[in-house]
């Protein structure tokens, strides 16, 4: 592999890993803090992508679509939490899996009714449509760099929120002792609603960002969901730092697996997971 090819693959790996983080961070928070196994989390990624498709059609520009889409996704998440997920916290994992699997079916059916089963493309915003030439024949699309930059900014924001704000302290405290948080006069139900809506908004934002690169197609959330669960398990349930590290590891394993050993590429991710779990059964980072 020559240097420019390596560089391109590295950028792709990082971009894929960061995008994965947007989905996996919400998944790990919802699992680690509320104790809910949310199989529908990949569907939120799909909802984001279709939202991007629909709103880009309406507004003519993906950037406007994203600006509109994020608050919509957050509100949708808050509504869903109030309507369904809030009733799941005290239920066992089997009931959670049943309800959230049912949600996947509902979302897919809704998608089919609204948008049909065809693959749809979303245009890269004109502002970021250029490519950066690397050699005479190789170049790198600016939009992919924008994806990475946006993800990095969001990851930084999420870490600040969790580490530095009162809301973040309450979130962490609540994962340890819910009753005590309430006894201090804090409405933990409201906190959970915010965390859930935030998780939905992050996953949907991932889908919106990815839409021009991956296109928008039926079942697009499922692959992301499975890999995101791998990320959560590797990173350690409930750990956002773990999710970030694991996302990047998976991004690298997947991308370079496809380049170096294409015939076994599908295995690379799971080999990494098996290796990490043998080394640290609790994941790289423990809850925190």
């Amino acid at each position: 592999m020559d240097l420019p090819t390596f560089l391109i693959q590295l950028l792709n790996a990082v971009q894929y890993g960061l995008l994965l983080f947007l989905v996996a961070s919400g998944l790990t928070l919802i699992f680690g803090i509320m104790g809910v196994i949310n199989l529908a989390h990949g569907a939120f990624y799909m909802v984001g992508a279709y939202l991007a498709f629909a709103l880009t059609g309406l507004t003519g520009n993906l950037l406007f679509a994203i600006l509109l889409g994020i608050p919509l996704a957050f509100a949708f998440g808050a509504l869903l939490e109030w309507l369904l997920y809030a009733h799941l916290y005290k239920r066992d994992h089997l009931e959670q899996v049943l309800l959230t699997y049912g949600l996947i079916l509902i979302f897919e059916e809704g998608r089919s009714l609204l948008f049909g089963d065809d693959v749809h493309g979303v245009d890269v915003p004109a502002l970021f449509a250029a490519s950066i030439p690397l050699t005479d024949t190789l170049s790198y699309p600016v939009y992919r760099l924008v994806i990475s930059a946006a993800c990095i900014a969001l990851a930084a924001g999420l870490f600040l929120l969790i580490r530095r704000t009162k809301l973040g302290m309450v979130i962490r405290a609540g994962s340890h002792d819910r009753d005590m948080v309430q006894a201090l006069g804090i409405d933990i139900d409201r906190t959970y609603r915010i965390v859930f809506a935030l998780g939905v908004a992050l996953a949907a934002f991932g889908g919106m960002l990815a839409a021009p690169v991956s296109s928008v197609y039926p079942g697009m959330g499922n692959q992301v969901l499975i890999i995101s669960f791998v990320v959560v398990v590797i990173g350690g349930i409930g750990s956002v730092t773990g999710a970030l590290v694991a996302s990047l590891v998976i991004g690298l394993a997947d991308t370079f697996g496809k380049v170096l050993v294409p015939e076994y590429a599908g295995l690379a991710v799971y080999l990494v997971m098996a290796a990490v779990l043998l080394w640290r059964p609790e994941g790289i980072f423990r809850r925190g």
Partner: peptide
Amino acid sequence: GIFPNLSVRENLVMAAR
């Protein structure tokens, strides 16, 4: 009932009102 995963400062600040 302290929050062991929070620092002393955070344990105090999170309750402030």
